[in-house]
Amino acid sequence: MANKLKESKKRPPMFLLTRGKKRPSSFLSLRPQIVSSKKQLSESVRSATKDSLWISYEKDLTNDLMRFASKSNSHLGNGLLIHPLDMNSIPTLTSLFDRLAFKANGGFLPPHELAEVFESENRSDLFIGSSVNSDTETITFWRGDFRSLTVPFSTFNNSGDGTKPDFEECAVIDSGLTVQLGDYEAAVEAILYEHDLEFRRRLSKKRLQEDQSFGASLRRLRKQRGLRREDFEPGICAKTIARIEQGKVSRVQKSTLDVLSSRLGVAPEEIESF
């Protein structure tokens, strides 16, 4: 019983609105409740939670969902609508879903790749679909956690070999890791790095932790000890500590190493192991 509770807590309910016979198998790993009739729909609305995930391939079932959910004041969770949508249904949908991704003039990943993204721990760093607006020269990407990110065309510089991005041929590929613009491809990581401050901070922190240089080790150890660069004075000035940490000192002198070692409380040869 405890295991069952743990399992159900881990995986929010997923509802798949489809009449396609092959589609459910692609989402099998997410254990979806298949909804293909009005009766099933009303039952699903009752069992939905604020963490639920709804994926609809059928416009009429989405319309019925709006009717049922509006009557019961339900909060449906997150919704992904992979069918043409009427503009006038968007206000209703945005009030029912916490986050909503919908098909405009772009597309989404194929079902098995969508399922892979939703299962992934780093789904917020993966794209599931895109929508190009030529009038504003922007592309809106939907992320695996249903947040959207809008970037200008100018994000995509021509490749050094002269290849230009073709914005009429925009697609998300490689299970959300790559954006394809005709023959041109861009790493999703590179787009997020430029346009998402939180992602950039997180990645920079991770890369710093992975840096195996002496300077990076010294920086990690100093932070772990709760020391400021100034705390090594008068033996070593703060500027010198900064230069060592930034890799600007090619060879650290023995006398400097001794001061570092003494202040940090580790043997000189151990500093690099941090």
Partner: peptide
């Protein structure tokens, strides 16, 4: 499995990316 170099990569050292599903 895929192994590729894309036209826009994160600005770091020259690299090739090996991809399988959502992992790289």
């Amino acid at each position: 499995w895929k192994m590729k170099i894309r036209d826009k990569e994160i600005c770091e050292h020259p690299h090739v990316t090996i991809i399988r599903g959502t992992v790289f």
